[in-house]
Write a protein that binds this DNA or RNA. Structure first.
Lengths: 340, 340
DNA sequence: ATACCCATTGCAATCGATTGCAATGATGTG
DNA sequence: CACATCATTGCAATCGATTGCAATGGGTAT
């Protein structure tokens, strides 16, 4: 592959001059520059970024670590991130951690060795697993911005949806609909101030209702969700509404309910969280809480690039919380007492 | 950040020795090596890949260009690809071309400048747009493997699902169900031997039926699909089955049909293509054609890594075609004549 | 004791760029 | 005409690794 030296020889100048010419420096005579440009063009010269990166001590690359792509939420987010990253002039190095500690570490090491300029860390449902290692990297000067919140996240810049507020909106919606016996299907995660189920339960309590412990199902898989539904259908009095902590779970809940002959929302209302595209396609269309993913992606890469360019290098970590909103569709309706 | 030289100084040896020690070379005394390893470890030394890449003339990274992430088919594919790529010891540089010519070119340039070892090009619905440029790159020695087929693809290694066969299976399925009046909603793409609609129409013809030109709708967006459905509902006699060339279209078709009070499949059968996860969630669950995405991803990266390592460097381009299969669900049923 | 061998280590070139500084020559000025 | 100025250009160091080759020195065979 053509290199600077080759073009220099062809043009009868030194490689320094070629380098300057191609960079558009004013230090080279206009005629010379144009001649060099022509030659470079004719021979299809393209700068070797890896040499350039070595000399310049940066790579114009951003590392992105995400858990997986099978939950449609992530592709949506990554699509936006990729667009903003490329608009900002960076390349994207993508690593899928597969929700597993070892991989998250490996990705971090890899990204660091490759000297990416900064890292975007999308934490899985369990929060950041490589937290300790990430903190080390971060302290050593590599800009890292987190998507999501978990205990310890405050050491980083982070961006998250206002999940707690979304959960509260759901709670009020259900209360308004007259539901008194509500079940919660959630994961045993603890996202502190941003925890969905905690906020939900608290808001319901604000309304003067307490959610029976027996109506709180902690699940860790779709299998569990199915089991939870089966159990729930046997309890007396049977709940008239279910809050599932994410759409993908709400979807299997609806499916299972319908398979058991229960009508949604006539018999039981179901509400999810995330506003997946799919949520509007299923029948009944899912009531859920959405967040402007685009806004989050934008904040994410903006924050990171600012850190990289040093605009905000010294500043304290900041967290940005983007609002969520309730999207009322067909899976939720007025409570009908069917305990009899 | 620590470099080789620093560790060398600490250990009282030359940087060459450190390099060898860390690479596990037998050319360095065991005791020396262990001492160096300990020091490197203590000080958190991590090799600078960009320097290494420059010297070694390869980057251990694979470039992936895909059109977008909003059609769930792509994330599914990319997930698999990412897993295989990482299993093979490479990093992934992801570029989303957004179906637009200019971006595809830009990505190719970028990837080349970054000296990725090879490129995986997943072509959008319109086939490879940067075909000419890609061909140039390929000729210049950069391994490129294509996902999908388009006229001219034979110059590359490529992997594709056997879409034509899938379409034929659908045709026979519809024929078996007794449908005589069938509509096709497809895109004006011409994927030659792998074209879905062409294969479908031909197979129907094998069954002795000819699909009326008026029943073939060429669309380029979901909007168009909705329009097509409206038109279709006015034709007499009204078709009893619709073949949509991809699930995402089939989904809006169903939605539109149902909105118009048509029952699927009682009044009209609808069949898609791709087997998106969503297809099994909607109501009625979609009859469609699926393909082992995992197998395609595997073939894709296997082929590419073989080219990179030179195992098959000299060999002719090869195309691998992975089988497809009909998945019968609820959206297709026996034909009922409702023309009256 | 001499010669030779082998294990270990260091020297220096190399990968392909960028850039501070020195060198060159043309031009302008007093 | 002598000298300062300025626009161009080249030299050489540098980024942080890898690796062929030479150098060193201890051990063994003759």
């Amino acid at each position: 592959m053509m290199k600077l030296e080759d073009i220099a020889k062809l043009a009868g100048v030194s490689h320094s001059t070629v380098s300057r010419a191609l960079a558009g420096s004013t230090l080279v005579n206009r005629a010379t520059r144009e001649r060099i440009e022509a030659i470079a063009n004719d021979h299809g010269y393209m700068v070797n970024q890896v040499a350039r990166n070595l000399k310049l001590q940066h790579t114009n690359t951003i590392g992105l670590i995400a858990p997986e792509l099978s939950n449609p939420y992530y592709p949506k987010l990554i699509q936006c991130i990729a667009d903003y990253v490329s608009a900002a002039g960076y390349s994207l190095q993508l690593h899928l951690s597969g929700k597993n500690q070892e991989n998250e570490d490996k990705s971090l090491v890899n990204l660091r060795n490759n000297r990416v300029d900064g890292i975007l860390l999308v934490t899985g449902e369990h929060g950041l697993m490589a937290s300790e290692y990430a903190a080390g990297l971060h302290k050593s000067g590599i800009p890292i911005v987190l998507m999501g919140w978990f205990p310890g996240a405050d050491a980083f810049d982070f961006v998250t949806g206002d999940d707690a507020d979304g959960a509260r909106q759901i709670a009020r919606h259900l209360l308004d609909l007259g539901h008194k016996n509500i079940a919660v299907i959630g994961k045993p995660v603890h996202r502190g101030p941003f925890d969905r189920t905690t906020a939900f339960i608290n808001e319901i309590a604000q309304g003067g209702l307490v959610i029976d412990a027996g109506n709180c199902y902690e699940i860790t898989s779709e299998q569990d969700a199915i089991l939870a539904v089966k159990q729930l259908l046997q309890t007396e009095p049977r709940p008239t509404a279910i809050f599932a902590y994410q759409d993908s779970i709400a979807l299997v809940v609806c499916k299972e309910l319908q398979a058991a002959g229960i009508r949604v929302p006539d018999d039981i209302s179901v509400i999810g969280f995330d506003d997946l595209d799919m949520a509007s396609y299923v029948s009944p269309a899912l009531t859920t809480v959405g967040c402007h993913i685009d806004a989050m992606a934008k904040a994410l890469v903006q924050r990171l690039t600012e850190r990289i360019t040093g605009e905000t290098a010294a500043a304290e970590p900041v967290g940005v919380v983007v609002p969520t909103r309730l999207i009322t569709r067909q899976s939720s309706g007025p409570a009908h007492d069917i305990s009899s």
